[in-house]
Design a protein around this nucleic acid. Sequence first.
DNA 1: GTCCCTAGCTTGTTTGGACAAGTTCTGTGC
DNA 2: GCACAGAACTTGTCCAAACAAGCTAGGGAC
Lengths: 244, 244
Amino acid sequence: MHPRYARIADELRAAILGGELPVGAPLPSETVLAARHKVARGTIRQAVAVLTAEGLVGSRQGARRIVLGRERSQNFAVLHSFAEWARAAGHEVTGQVIGQRRRTAGAAEAARLGLAAGDPVLQVLRLRRLDGVAVLLERTVYAGWLAPSVERLPADCDSVTRALYESQGLVFAYGEHLIDAVAAGTEDARLLGVRRGGPLLRQRRVTTTREGRPAEWSDDRYRAGSVTFAIRNAAGALAVHPRD
Amino acid sequence: MHPRYARIADELRAAILGGELPVGAPLPSETVLAARHKVARGTIRQAVAVLTAEGLVGSRQGARRIVLGRERSQNFAVLHSFAEWARAAGHEVTGQVIGQRRRTAGAAEAARLGLAAGDPVLQVLRLRRLDGVAVLLERTVYAGWLAPSVERLPADCDSVTRALYESQGLVFAYGEHLIDAVAAGTEDARLLGVRRGGPLLRQRRVTTTREGRPAEWSDDRYRAGSVTFAIRNAAGALAVHPRD
DNA sequence: GTCCCTAGCTTGTTTGGACAAGTTCTGTGC
DNA sequence: GCACAGAACTTGTCCAAACAAGCTAGGGAC
């Protein structure tokens, strides 16, 4: 059973997404919502904090909260799984391991994965297609303790994230991402079917388990025009502290 | 004066950034922190919520909170003000308006800015340099009601965000961003000094005021290799997702 | 020695109250 | 008609308490 505040958040979100609360409209005040749901004001505040973090509503002290948009930026679960995002968007997604080998970590990798240089890691090169078109080239390095689980996966596994969750109970909870643009190298160009030197969107990321243990370090290159990252920054606590 | 929880958050952040609480180390428990600062547990929870949103610490019910990383992602600042991010990073930043003209909004622009097609807007083309090197080309469309304020700005204004805040009290509080890679067009290549067809990092963004009123719509193109977006997604903080 | 199970600790959820800080609207005085 | 003071409302901060849910280490059974 979800906690009370989450259910209230779901209800409010549905009202916004369904157009009942149109963009620009004020939300009912906390007092009103508290009375309506028969909960304390603190619980309502937790519920609207969820919506604020999703960028759906904005707030200013003293004024009523306002609906900012109807498009909810997906929570980070989707970010880690290309496959799940694609499926949710109605695309057919396939994956193929091009190469895979064990080796020892270099100094930079070791630092990112919280290992010592020379520790064993598993390097995987994976090509992913969206509706049959090659779209994403992943160069992933898994920490040694994950290697056996990854090696057991079939070469055409669609969603690695999901597979590891189901087989190991592993949840990739926190991530750090670096996004920039690079020119396609020879291998990139050949596998993604683009011109060498052409634009690619690069996403480098570290994923860690819920305990804060780094699990994988990946360099993902997207074919230009195939994928866009959408970021909505509304962050409640982060955003609105005026500078002094 | 900052609120109590913000000061406690600052103190904890400093301890993490300063290495006093190394990566992987557990935070003191809420009870201990509450006693140490002589505040209620709820206040401590607000403080650590800030750090969680910044991706510095992780938490699981039942276990102590753990330090996840030492780098605070620039996310919010970067996305909103190129100038302020650059200055904070120790770079010298300059800007130059290349062209500026009033016109009427097309259908797509109007939709993004919450206007009707044909409403007046102000289009500005601006080139920005980092330590003297051309790095960013901004094509910005301002809603008509902002045009007078923007036109009053000097052509070499460094930080438009700050200038509009100081002259108008305008705060760009919420934003939505689309990030992808594109090939440099002729104009892009000439102004940024790169090869035509080469990789550029494109950031398209809508910025709205605190009231949820869209203020500007911009297509920013960064020279590859000059800038990287760093995003850290912790639960409930900043959400990112790829889409088409 | 090994395994399991529980006691105690830690974080998560919720209540209800109080005051501070900021906004909005109303009405009065000019 | 307009400007300004204030009342009423709304969100932000903080407190003290209770119980639920989940984790960890240590002790007892085998």
